[in-house]
Every structure is written in C-alpha cells, then in structure tokens.
C-alpha cells in the first residue's frame, strides 16, 4: 500500500507535471533548433515569438467566448490556436522580409544574426506588452480536471490523490501530434527533405536546385506554428505573462543545446531532461520518501534539494555539464 501511495504521489507531483512541462519545452526547443538548422543562428526572439502567438490566441479566445462559441470540456483556446499560428506566421515572415533577409544576402556572421534577433526580441516584447499588457492572463476554460484528486482517492482507496489536469492531457496529446507531423514532414515530404538537405549541405542543396528562400519561408512558418503551440500549451497549463515567456528562453535553449543544437530528436530529449531535472530537484520529496522508508529513517526536512526559485540553476548546471563533457549535445548536433 505504501509503495502504491509513493508511486501515486510521485506521478502526481513529479511525473505528470514534468511530462507536460517537458512536452512544452520540447516543442519550444524544436523551434529553436530548426532556426539554427536552416538559418544558422540562435534566435533570442523565440520566447517573445511564443508570447506573440499565445497573445493572439488569447485575444481570439476572448472573442469566441464573448460570442458564446466554446469547445465544451476542451479549452476554447484550441479553436483559436490556428488563428494564433496564422498571425505569428505573418509576423515572422514580415520580420524575415524586413530584417533577416538583408543579412542573409550579405552572408553576415551568425553572431550578427544573434544581435539582430535581440533587436527583434525588443520589438516583439514591446509589441506584446503594448497590446495585451505586462500582466498575468488566464485563458483556460472548459473542464479543469480529467481525473481529480478526490475522485481518484475515492476510487482507489489510497491516501494519495492523482490529479490529471485537462491542460496536461491536451499538452501531451498535442505534443505527440505536432512531433509526429513534424517528423513526417521532414522525413517523408519533398519539401521537408529539401529542408534537411539545405541544413546538411547548403552548397550542394543549391546545386541540386533547392530554392533557399523557399526553404527559409517554410522554416519560418513551421517555427511560427511550433512557437505558438508551445506558448499556448504552456499558458493553458500555467498562465500567460510576457516576462515569463521571455524567461522561458533559458530552459528552451538549454533543452536544445543539451539535446544537440540542430537535432530535432535532441530537442525533444533535451526538453524532457531539463523538465524532469527541474521538477525533481525543486520538488520536496519528503512525502514520497515518507512512504518508502521505515519510520526511523524518515527525513525531517522537506528533502527539497533546492528552492523552486533555483529552477534556472538546474537548466544551467545541466547545460554546463553536458557542454563540458559532450560539447555537441546528447544527440550529435552541428556547429556553425
């Protein structure tokens, strides 16, 4: 019984939140890694791209809600998501046309692109705050739980409850769909393969008649979709705040780099590594250990290795360790 309780507590407080958070990071990191693959720079504006997409989705969600359109138990935001993606697609394409394309033609160094992306970051950040304000927004509606802790206790007779939030289930389902679609696209379609070819060997891709501008265009559209999906899932699960999204840049980059910058599989693995470490290290394990250890060994403290505010430290330490011992990441990434 105690072991069951421990497993349930672990699932409830660590596994489920970490899987949801890991999926969100993974989709975010996929966007970063694709930009790195095709446009060959680290996009500092990615967090703010996510914020923009989420903001548009929220605005449409409000519009739908005011019109009385909902999805029943599912959050209305899912209905608004395609519109958010479309708007973000237009934004990043506009940015590419007005900003990045100039430097691409100049064949500017990657670090110039990074600095340019900092400028873009400022603009997108300002834009989002200007439109929706810097405050916290909650936009999840519909049923809050699929399984609530109380129902689970009644059903199982255990002391520990297991809660599964709708947002968590949606995150995982959507993440699986997005990742499957992305890999299908990259590995099975002509355009997807041409993107991989361009990323692999730009000169040879040109010789093969692959149009680089088209590859870049498709990449931006995919990135816009990934960023918006990641942002909306994160916002549904927690809440939307422009500054938080800007800060997500760090765990997202950590995920992409830990997995191997430029490797889509690595981005996913990295997302889960970072999410699990963050949750494990900052969660008080007393409850779980309490079930497993005999009373005499039961810990006095909370057995929280680090306070939750140190979650950045976790991403960072993993990042540094991986870079020191395996500089190209878990899955062999590429370096520009």
């Amino acid at each position: 019984m105690d072991i069951l309780n421990a497993i349930v507590a672990l699932s409830n407080f660590v596994l489920i939140p970490a899987i949801a958070y890991g999926s969100q990071l993974a989709i975010g990191a996929l966007g970063v890694t694709l930009i790195y693959d095709i446009l060959r720079f680290s996009n500092f504006a990615h967090g703010d791209t996510m914020a923009f997409g989420t903001m548009v989705t929220i605005l449409f969600t409000w519009l739908f809600q005011s019109m009385g359109i909902t999805l029943g138990p599912l959050p209305t935001a899912l209905l608004a998501l395609p519109l958010g993606i479309a708007a973000t697609g237009l934004l990043v394409l506009g940015t590419d046309r007005m900003v990045y394309r100039f430097y691409r033609r100049q064949k500017a160094a990657p670090v110039v692109f990074v600095i340019v992306s900092i400028g873009v970051m400022f603009i997108m950040n300002g834009l989002v705050r200007f439109i929706i304000g810097p405050g916290d927004q909650r936009f999840a509606d519909g049923a809050r739980f699929i399984i609530s802790a109380r129902d689970f206790k009644a059903w199982s007779g255990l002391n520990e409850g297991l809660a599964l939030k709708t947002s968590q289930a949606i995150t995982v389902v959507v993440a699986v769909m997005v990742v499957a679609a992305l890999f299908w696209f990259l590995n099975r379609t002509r355009t997807g393969k041409s993107m991989r070819a361009y990323s692999d060997n730009e000169d040879l891709a040109l010789l093969s008649g692959i149009n680089p501008e088209r590859v870049v265009l498709v990449t931006w559209l995919i990135v816009a979709a990934l960023a918006t999906v990641a942002g909306v899932l994160y916002g549904l699960d927690k809440s939307f705040k422009p500054f938080t999204y800007f800060q997500l840049l760090l765990p997202i980059f950590a995920s992409a780099i830990v997995g191997g910058l430029g490797s889509p599989l690595g981005a996913i693995a990295g997302g889960f590594v970072i999410a699990f470490s963050e949750v494990l290290v900052t969660y008080p394990l007393k409850k779980i250990l309490g079930y497993l250890l005999p009373e005499s060994l039961e810990p006095n403290g909370l057995v929280q290795l680090l306070s939750t505010d140190y979650k950045f430290a976790v991403s960072f330490v993993i990042l540094v360790i991986v870079l020191l011992f395996r500089p190209t990441g878990l899955f062999r990434g590429k370096s520009v």
Partner: peptide, 23 residues
C-alpha cells in the same frame, strides 16, 4: 564554449545570481 553557447551560459548565470540574491 562557442559564442552562442557562451551567450546562453551567461544568460543563465545572471538569472542564477538574481535568484540567489532574491532567496
């Protein structure tokens, strides 16, 4: 580390410094 890795690393360190000072 390469320049963009150094960038992310320093970005992280700054957040950690602030986290320490806050906590």
């Amino acid at each position: 580390l390469r320049s963009d890795y150094l960038a992310i690393a320093t970005l992280g360190i700054a957040e950690i410094v602030i986290a320490v000072m806050k906590n």
